[in-house]
């Protein structure tokens, strides 16, 4: 059971992710994009962040960079949920402090499993 911030600009993905995570017994807060997520994160802590990579306003990379600057987000797992599989993208994600990634196509069991994995 964890409190999870799910960030995706696509309403369907957002819904799917939040439904899956809630189904797994987690508490889910959703955000439409990086700006939205950061706004939330400034005032509230979570256990895990799951974010899309490509988003308008503030993309996933920028979001992670910003989140890692927040004291209460420094060490929590932050995962990318993305279709991007290129090495460069992974490297860039890592360089700003992402914990790891889940590569789409989306699979509810895999998501729950991965979340369970990173929940120390």
């Amino acid at each position: 059971m964890a409190k999870i911030l799910a960030v995706d600009d696509s309403p369907s993905m957002r819904k799917l992710v939040s439904m899956t995570l809630r189904h797994g017994g987690h508490d889910v807060i959703t955000a439409d994009d990086g700006v939205d997520a950061l706004e939330f994160a400034k005032n509230e802590s979570v256990n895990i962040v799951v974010t899309d990579l490509h988003m308008p306003n503030m993309n996933g990379i920028a979001l992670v960079r910003e989140l890692r600057n927040l004291e209460h987000y420094k060490y929590i797992p932050i995962l990318f949920l993305t279709t991007e599989t290129s090495i460069e993208m992974k490297k860039e994600g890592k360089s700003v402090g992402a914990t790891g990634w889940i590569v789409k196509p989306f699979n509810s069991e895999k998501l729950l499993e991965t979340v369970a994995k990173v929940l120390a």
Binding site: S10, S12, H54, T83
Partner: peptide
Amino acid sequence: RAAHSIKGGAGTF
């Protein structure tokens, strides 16, 4: 970005 989202969503669903 729009194309990418469609691709990802379509794969997912």
